[in-house]
Simulated scan of single mutants.
Amino acid sequence: MNNTLLIEITNPKALGLLHELEELHLIKVLETRTKESKLSDKYRGVFTKEDAQSFNSHTQEMRNEWKGI
């Protein structure tokens, strides 16, 4: 069996448990760090140009409404 899973560690204790499982030769920990990307890079190409302009316009309207409160 050779399955690879990508997991996110949410508690430092979990990393210790994973290393213990590795010492028992039950799993192999492949440490990779994901680099944070900018939201503009992440969502580039997701919206059409028209949708993006509409979304931007709507966002600006909402911000202006909050300024008036």
Rank of each mutant, 00 (worst) to 15 (best):
T4C: 06
S54W: 11
T4Q: 13
L24S: 06
T32W: 04
E31C: 01
K28W: 02
G16M: 08
L24E: 09
V29E: 06
S54Q: 10
H19E: 12
G16K: 13
T48H: 10
V46G: 00
I9L: 15
H19G: 00
I69K: 10
E22M: 11
R44A: 15
E23A: 15
L18I: 12
L17E: 13
Q53E: 15
D51L: 13
L6E: 13
K67P: 00
K35R: 11
E50W: 01
L17W: 02
Y43I: 15
F47D: 03
G16A: 05
I7G: 04
K49F: 12
P12S: 09
E50D: 14
E61R: 06
R63Y: 02
L18N: 07
L30N: 13
L21P: 00
A14F: 03
L15D: 07
D51F: 06
W66C: 08
T10C: 03
P12M: 04
T34R: 06
E23H: 05
Q60H: 07
V29I: 14
R63Q: 06
L26A: 11
P12E: 09
N2Y: 07
L39P: 05
R33Y: 02
L18S: 05
K13H: 07
G68M: 10
S54F: 07
E36D: 10
E65T: 03
L24A: 11
N3K: 15
G45E: 12
N2G: 04
P12R: 09
R33D: 12
L21T: 03
M1W: 07
D51W: 09
W66I: 10
T32F: 03
W66Q: 12
A52T: 05
A14H: 10
L17K: 10
K28R: 14
A52D: 09
T48K: 13
R44C: 06
A14V: 14
E23N: 14
H19W: 07
P12G: 00
K13T: 09
N64L: 12
G16P: 01
A14R: 09
S40F: 03
E8Q: 11
K28I: 09
G45K: 07
E22N: 06
N64S: 05
A52Q: 13
I27M: 09
L26P: 01
L6M: 08
H58L: 14
Q53S: 09
V46Y: 15
H58Y: 05
T48C: 02
E8S: 07
N2F: 05
K13F: 06
I69E: 08
L15T: 01
L30Q: 13
L24T: 04
F55I: 13
I7L: 15
E22Q: 15
G16F: 04
T10D: 11
I69H: 00
I27R: 10
N3C: 06
I69Y: 01
E23I: 05
L21R: 05
